[in-house]
Nucleic acid binder design. Structure first.
Length: 283
DNA sequence: CACCATGTTCCTTG
DNA sequence: CCAAGGAACATGGT
């Protein structure tokens, strides 16, 4: 469940569950997700450490810990890739098929499972250096944004996926933000007029904030009664309107545009799907 | 078998 | 040095 809003909701959920808990040990089932950290390094660094904080940066989770003697503060960088999940589980629960890392917290386990293993849980923090501003914070200013777009000939949709421009937008919310701003996904980034840039910046913020708010209403359960998959799409079969459709345009090929009724179209840009309304997003 | 999927990094080319 | 495009990573759903 991994773009900025999903990570934000996960962080809010996990932080109070983790802070104060001490790591008894760790088991690594898929060393690849630790890279460039090794399994031995990972186990040795974390054993005896206590979680002190958890924050989000872009689509990353940054776990902060203190070692046993408080001599050293440790940071762990997490990323969910496309299919990663992180949660606390009872020790009696069966391990999911694609468990990558298991952290023993004494009474329970912290599980990192990831079907495709594109995710990360590592002591290497350097990916954070490449991130642009947080879209929901002050440093994502109109100036910063328009200057970031100025040099790029790429289609605006593709440029929005560039994490050094602004951190946390993924394939779904890129389409959602452009739809909300009424901007055509193929428009070259440098050709946006100031008014469009202004609109897009506000649309990005609105779309992300709204998703966080809606996501916060979905309980993050795991196991057989798992509900975190509802974050993006649909609603459970037997629940009320509470679980409204969350997305206006993404994955809605052929459906009527919620603004004008025109048929929603799909194109491929940089090998990824883009959804848009041909009438509401003409320029 | 074909194509699709919420992401990032590495390599090459210009 | 920079921008941009494409492959690679790995597994599963339809």
């Amino acid at each position: 469940m991994p773009e900025l809003p999903e990570v934000e909701v996960l962080v809010r959920h996990l932080k109070p569950l983790l802070v104060g808990k001490t790591i008894q040990g760790a088991r690594v089932f898929r060393e690849k997700v630790l890279l460039p950290t090794t399994a031995a390094q990972f186990r040795e660094t974390l054993r005896g450490a206590t979680f002190s904080d958890l924050i989000r940066r872009g689509k990353y989770l940054v776990f902060e810990l203190e070692s046993l003697n408080r001599k050293r503060s440790i940071k762990l960088l997490g990323h969910l890739g496309m299919t990663g999940r992180m949660y606390l589980a009872k020790k009696t629960d069966a391990l999911p098929k694609h468990t990558a890392v298991l952290i023993d917290l004494g009474q329970e386990n912290f599980v990192f499972e990831d079907t495709r293993y594109f995710g990360r849980l590592t002591l290497n923090l350097t990916p954070l250096d490449r991130l642009g501003p947080e879209p929901l914070q002050r440093d994502f200013s109109l100036n910063t944004f328009s200057q970031g777009l100025r040099r790029s000939a790429q289609p605006i949709k593709v440029k929005l996926l560039d994490q050094s421009l602004v951190a946390g937008i993924g394939n779904i919310y890129a389409s959602e933000a452009l739809f909300r701003a009424g901007i055509a996904p193929r428009l070259s980034a440098r050709r946006l007029r100031l008014e469009q840039t202004r609109k897009l910046r506000l649309a990005i913020r609105a779309v992300l904030r709204r998703a966080i708010n809606l996501g916060s209403t979905v309980p993050l359960n795991h196991g057989p009664d798992r509900t975190d998959g509802l974050f993006y799409f649909g609603r459970p079969a037997d629940t009320p309107d509470f679980y409204e459709e969350r997305l206006q345009i993404y994955d809605r090929l052929g459906h009527p545009c919620p603004n004008c009724g025109a048929s929603i179209r799909r194109i491929v840009q940089a090998a990824r799907s883009t959804f848009f309304c041909p009438k509401c997003q003409r320029s």
